[in-house]
Design a binder for these strands. Structure first.
Lengths: 216, 216
DNA sequence: CGTATTTATAGTACGGTGTACGAGATATGT
DNA sequence: ACATATCTCGTACACCGTACTATAAATACG
């Protein structure tokens, strides 16, 4: 095919990003290529480059689209600080887990766009309203934000990794009880844990207690 | 060139991994290719495949080599639990920051090899000696381990990202004070924070307080 | 000693990647 | 009408991981 139409953009940035997320959700992040993306849209590969400068920018757009889904609407300004902070942290986690294969993008680039920074702004507002000093508020937001993103991304990758590794061999352990006594001892209670959500919750409330409640 | 020698391995797994880490530390993880790695060693590309099954395995080996540097030696069995846990967490962080460009590997694959699991075993031992139940110990280890790795990797990537983005344009902010009042308010105290080490410390002690001290 | 086997290195080739460049077509402005 | 801006896309290049195969040197064995 040659040139087709012009000036009536049949192809938009939004469509490109949406198709990209479809591919990432379906086949994984490493399966996303400009060629496959163009094919998914029924369009020439190089047409994408009119709307997106390069693949790195595409990653940013995917992250942006993910974080745009963060739902901060059910925040109650009259609720206690702890509950409000918990709500934002959960919103971040839920959103990232909505697109687990894309979550890793949040780790490899620093947050820049308004959409990406909105949850942070929200946290700062909540802490400011609770009377926390700017320096302490910033530290609290950094720690809790990084905790929420970091731990959730590790969980998302754990899910992906498990799926992938289940269809391979399961020979991954050559651990000896002599070298790893505590692990073997602990593994006998394996039914009692492995709940990542509960673990996240436990860490989150410890952080909020130490960084928010104990600092007024 | 064709085949040269045999049975006197001039090329070893260790040399390959060492050269790979040299490249990663110098040029970044994305600059690591089998071809460049072979060139760095003055060797044919396909020779690498006799010692390493594929590139994914190479990543695992790099992670392994990184984590092998974790120094658990100055752990004092008579120190209070909190100090011992803090020590392990810091050892993990220091090691990851020793090879910041490689740190992201720790996020994308789950820990499997003995070397990778040794810090975890150490934490389990410390908590067991402190009388914590297996289920609670496992949760504590998960949370603190994921916190240490996740937050540190985000820091490492922030460093990389900053260096890279400084030589580009700095136009990255189009934030309006109307939309982001708390951020603008907070930014006026920018000198008082930005200390990632202090932030890490604050979060870590909050976690230890809530997950260890408060649970005996 | 001769010969078979194992160990190790490496060249070639295939199918994939991101994207620079430029050619072409359509719609819009004058 | 024509010039210009907008938009699409084919070709080509350099690079990637690695399957397959050929080759040589060291070793094992008769």
């Amino acid at each position: 095919m040659g040139p087709r139409k012009a000036n009536t953009p049949t192809l938009t940035r939004g469509q490109i990003v949406r198709a990209a997320m479809t591919i990432v959700d379906r086949d994984g992040l490493e399966a996303l290529s400009m060629r496959k993306l163009a094919a998914e849209l029924g369009v020439g590969t190089m047409s994408l480059y009119y709307h997106v400068p390069d693949k790195s920018a595409l990653y940013d757009l995917i992250l942006d689209a993910s974080l745009r889904e963060v739902d901060l609407s059910d925040d109650d300004p009259d609720a206690p600080v702890e509950a409000r902070v918990t709500g934002v942290a959960h919103a971040i986690r839920d959103t990232l887990l909505n697109h687990p294969r894309a979550a890793i993008i949040a780790m490899s680039r620093s947050l820049r766009t308004p959409t990406q920074l909105r949850p942070i702004e929200k946290l700062l507002q909540v802490l400011a309203e609770a009377g926390m000093s700017p320096a302490q508020a910033m530290q609290t937001v950094n720690v809790i934000g990084q905790y929420a993103v970091g731990v959730t991304v590790m969980y998302a990758n754990h899910i992906n990794d498990s799926e992938y590794r289940d269809e391979r061999e399961g020979d991954y352990t050559e651990l000896t009880p002599e070298e790893f006594p505590a692990m073997f001892q602990t593994m006998q209670h394996a039914e009692e844990f492995g709940d990542w959500d509960a673990d996240f919750e436990a860490g989150l409330s410890a952080l909020i207690k130490g960084l928010v409640t104990d600092r007024i």
